[in-house]
């Protein structure tokens, strides 16, 4: 089993923290993980992409081919479409619903949603409201992980353990909020 994810968003949105939780979960289940990140200039408000490969076998490549992603997991709608060439036929698109607008020619929201919905089974997640419901707007990333977890080859309990693992040093409140955000995302 090999599962390929393209993670995308805008620099500063926390794409890498999403990647970190999924990677931790996969490793807790004994799977191999390879994750290619983008650091440096593009992090300054530009489009960012990270690829993550989870596998029960040896993984050679950090990068994937077009049409090879099982999932595109995006922090915001426009970026979910930017790397759509990577999504395989029948692949899953999961994206936050709120646009991140820092360019003058950001497209019309409804048009964007219609493009996203033209892919079968797409999930448009209201991460902001669900995160607020969980206790902090900053937990939007975890809502997204929760939604993605519905199709990722990693168990719910493992994810909750990974969240605990990653956030413990930030205190019990933060763990609780992030777990709740995850569950809200998963049930959305």
């Amino acid at each position: 089993m090999t599962y390929n994810i393209v993670l995308c968003g805008v620099g500063g949105q926390g794409v890498l923290s999403v990647a970190a939780i999924i990677a931790r979960g996969a490793m807790m289940e004994g799977l191999q993980v390879k994750q290619a990140e983008v650091h440096g200039m593009s992090q300054r408000g530009g489009a960012v992409i990270a690829t993550m490969r989870i596998s029960s076998e040896e993984i050679f490549s950090d990068l994937i081919s077009e049409g090879q992603a099982d999932m595109i997991l995006s922090m915001e709608p426009l970026e979910s479409i930017r790397h759509i060439a990577y999504l395989k036929k029948g692949g899953q698109l999961v994206t936050g619903k709120d646009p991140f607008i820092n360019i003058p020619d950001y497209p019309d929201r409804e048009e964007l949603y219609s493009v996203i919905n033209s892919i079968e089974g797409s999930m448009l997640i209201d991460t902001k409201n669900l995160a607020v419901e969980a206790g902090s707007q900053r937990a939007q990333n975890m809502v997204l992980v929760g939604s993605a977890s519905k199709v990722l080859p990693i168990k719910e309990d493992t994810f909750l353990g990974a969240i605990e693992n990653v956030f413990t040093r930030k205190g019990e409140d933060i763990v609780t909020i992030n777990k709740k955000a995850f569950v809200l995302g998963r049930n959305s």
Partner: peptide, 20 residues
């Protein structure tokens, strides 16, 4: 090449890095 997901045509604007 691998078979890709089908998606409605779309004119993608660039998002270059910028000052924060």
């Amino acid at each position: 090449s691998f078979e890709k997901a089908e998606v409605k045509a779309f004119d993608m604007p660039g998002r270059p890095p910028q000052l924060c």
